[in-house]
């Protein structure tokens, strides 16, 4: 049994931490989405206004932020599939821990495909 203070339902381990991570990544993605719709809306103002703001997305600090954002989206997406399997697959609850490790494996593979290419675009000059 994981140790937890008396009077809490939080049980730790894979189940709780994946739930926490799902909430944290979800909120982060939501706030980015609000900003992203606003910055994209500048195409309606003028090409100059849009290019000026999107130019800030191309500096290295923002480039790392985008990598973090994609990581959040990829985790949230794969863990979302895991949640649906827990809900709808008859053996879902039994395999929820294994499925989190599958999620992490797919996450690593996806990010290994994305990161080098993205960082090349951000830091590689041309």
């Amino acid at each position: 049994m994981p140790s937890a203070p008396a009077g809490t339902l939080y049980r730790g381990r894979e189940g709780m931490w994946s739930w926490v991570a799902h909430r944290v990544t979800g909120v982060a993605i939501f706030f980015f989405l609000l900003v992203h719709v606003l910055d994209t809306s500048l195409v309606r103002v003028s090409p100059e206004a849009y290019d000026a703001v999107i130019g800030t997305y191309k500096n290295p600090v923002m480039g790392l932020g985008e990598a973090g954002l994609v990581a959040a989206v990829v985790f949230h997406a794969f863990n979302g599939i895991r949640i649906m399997l827990v809900d709808f697959w008859s053996k879902g609850t039994r395999y929820q821990r294994v499925m989190l490790w599958v999620v992490m494996g797919l996450f690593v593979v996806t990010m290994a495909g994305f990161l080098p290419r993205h960082l090349m675009h951000v830091f590689g000059g041309e």
Binding site: V43, P47, Y50, D51, I54, K58, I81, F114, V122
Partner: peptide
Amino acid sequence: GVVLLVLIFAHLFVNLVAGEGISAIDFG
């Protein structure tokens, strides 16, 4: 969630991976 997975993964692929990625995004 299922639909968004497809929509957003394709969005990210087309805008950040294919072509020149973030460095090619502008008004054009």
